[in-house]
């Protein structure tokens, strides 16, 4: 920085505004949440945060988010591959649609997925014939989270895949590697950091997701009740202390994930996160 006078004005004004706006809107309200939690004794906190119904909701949230993020990693990689490497009619529209979960309000996604995957729905009726029920079961939660997570993996993998040097692949092929060997030994290692970042982003987003899940899950305690819904239920019963304690647990989990994602970004990639 140095003592030298800056040519460009406005440093104090813009930094001051940034910090004040950030503090008023984000930091202070989040701080109040933590403050409210510290007003609880540790026993009280522990009792609320580890009640049976709450523990069951952590399990539902965690395992649904994990399954959805894993499914998205596999299929997201295929989608990214197809969009980068192939040309086919309708590619632009498909590419555009990948961002739909970002643009479509979650409540709309929720009611629509419920209609499609209900027993008599467009897709649900065929699954029903196989004995698979989606809407109002744990599988419904996973379906909603798959929808929400689609763009994260595709949009983190896509730019990295586009930059991979085709010459390296050609060299591998010339040296006698099969297509699968080339993918596994040459391409996949380069894609892996991006894939892991996309997975983590989708997982993090899924943990907190509310709107798309509540319609399709049926919200059965111990079975399909996600943690954000428990917070909502406690708020509706004016149990602010209970809601706050569980929110603190969720916040801690998200911040650990955020830290992990930032480390990943910092370590292995120069690409900006998609969102």
């Amino acid at each position: 920085m140095g003592k030298q006078r800056r040519v460009i004005p406005g440093f104090g004004l813009t930094l001051g505004y940034t910090v004040i706006y950030l503090s008023l809107l984000v930091l202070i309200p989040l701080g109040v949440l933590l403050l409210k939690t510290t007003s609880l004794s540790f026993e009280q906190f522990w009792q609320i945060a580890t009640a049976d119904r709450v523990l069951a909701s952590y399990r539902v949230s965690f395992f649904s988010a994990l399954s959805a993020a894993l499914i998205n990693s596999v299929f997201g990689l295929v989608v990214a591959w197809v969009l980068v490497r192939f040309s086919f009619p309708g590619k632009r529209v498909l590419d555009m649609l990948v961002d739909l979960p970002f643009a479509l309000p979650t409540a709309v996604a929720g009611i629509s997925l419920t209609a499609v995957f209900a027993q008599n729905g467009w897709i649900g009726q065929y699954l029903e014939a196989w004995g698979i029920k989606v809407a109002f079961t744990p599988l419904g939660v996973v379906v909603a989270l798959i929808f929400i997570g689609i763009p994260f993996v595709v949009r983190t993998v896509q730019p990295v895949l586009a930059e991979i040097d085709k010459q390296v692949e050609e060299a591998a092929a010339t040296l006698g590697a099969s297509a699968w060997q080339t993918f596994r030994r040459v391409i996949f290692p380069q894609l892996f950091p991006a894939l892991l970042t996309g997975f983590s982003l989708a997982f993090a987003r899924s943990l907190g997701e509310y709107g798309s899940v509540v319609f399709i899950s049926g919200n059965m305690p111990m079975k399909t009740e996600i943690t954000p819904l428990i917070i909502m239920t406690k708020l509706e019963q004016f149990d602010y202390t209970g809601a706050t304690a569980i929110a603190t647990v969720m916040l801690a989990a998200s911040f650990v994930l955020l830290l992990f994602i930032n480390l990943l970004q910092w370590r292995c990639s120069k690409h900006q996160l998609p969102y």
Binding site: P29, L235, F255
Partner: peptide, 13 residues
């Protein structure tokens, strides 16, 4: 990184 439900909760608090 904050769940939408928590984003509402903090302002209620």
């Amino acid at each position: 990184a904050v769940s939408p439900v928590i984003s509402g909760l903090i302002f209620v608090l």
